[in-house]
Structures are given as C-alpha cells and as structure tokens.
Amino acid sequence: MFTLLYGLWKWIFRKDEYFILILGLDNAGKTTYLEQTKTRFTKNYKALPPNKVTATVGLNIGKVDTLGVRLNFWDLGGQEELQSLWDKYYAECHAIIYVIDASDRSRLAESKAAFDQMIKSEHLIGVPLLILANKQDIPDCMGVREVKPVFADSGDLIGRRDCLVMPICALNGEGVEESIQWLTDCVLRNSTIRPPKEDKE
C-alpha cells in the first residue's frame, strides 16, 4: 500500500528535468547570469552580490522550476585551459547558452573560435542554442545587429536547430526572464529528440 501511494505521489509531483549548459569565454558573465536567473526564479534566494562573483574553475549548479519543468544549469569556467573540459557535458545537455562579453570587441574573434570548436561537436547536433550578447549596459557595446552576422558565419556548423541571439544585461537582470522563457520553449519543443530526465525525487 505504501509503495502504491508513494508511486502515486511521485507521479503527481514528478517534474521533467532538463539540463542547460552555460558556456563562453572567461569574464563573459556566465556566473553573474546564473546568479541573476536563480534570484529571479527562486523565492527567498540569497543571491551572491555581483562583486563577489569570482572566476569559475569548476562547476556552479542551479535549479529553476518554471512552466512546469525543472531546469538544471551547469555553469563552467571559460578560461582557455578549462575549455577542454566543456565537452564532457555535451551528451547530457538539452540546450546551450553561449555568453559573450559584448563590450569587448578585442575578444570577439577568440570567443567565436571557442564557439566553433564547441558547436561542431557531434554530441550537440540539433541542441537548441541561445547566444547572449551580455553587458548591454556598457556604452558602445556590440548590439545583436553586430554580433549576429559574426556567428551566422558558422551557419553550416550550427545547422538546423533553434538558435537565437539575444541582448541582455546579467548585472541588472534585463532580458534574463525572456531568455529563460525562450529556452524553455525550445527544450520542450525538442523533447521528442532529447527527452527529459525524469525527476528522481
């Protein structure tokens, strides 16, 4: 009887889980974006003040419940040495968020090269892709119109998949909710191809 009830309880409260990988060069704003996302989607979340965010050498995780699903985030370090660790997560992720520092034109080519290296992985074929042009608060930063053609240049590597370039400001949170909304729609749409993991709780 207990197992039956437990089974029923689990069925009612089960949540489909999706895994979102956040990548991009160091200093792009990935961890700041994740903190901002947690703050906006989690009640009573005590966010780390942005000035206390330090370079990631490891993994930051985040859980967000929205639109009836659970999103699990993996935020990795972007330093060159650490980029070799990115591909360990490709096979299990349901979407990629690629963050660029739109205020830093001098590193755009470097960011694009790391992007190409990532997106050509066979483990990521068809996985929805969201490119965030971050730091829109900084005057004279690159807007979507400037960033998009640079990445569109890799059209054949990107192939057929949901793909969008969005302007955001991770620091003050502008655009963060919209970005999560878009991504959730995408992973749901793509769930016949990459099915969710069922919540074990």
């Binding site: 990631t56 050498v57 490891g58 993994l59 930051n60 995780i61 699990n72 650490l82 660790l85 360990k88």
Partner: peptide, 17 residues
C-alpha cells in the same frame, strides 16, 4: 580536474584552487 574525475559531478557546486 581530470585525474579526480570531477566531470562526473553533475549535481554539486565545486571549485578548484
């Protein structure tokens, strides 16, 4: 990171120094 197999950790925040 690789020698300790840390990429197997998927549900825990960690950082190496």
């Amino acid at each position: 990171h690789q020698a300790l197999g840390l990429d197997a950790l998927r549900a825990r925040t960690f950082q190496i120094f």
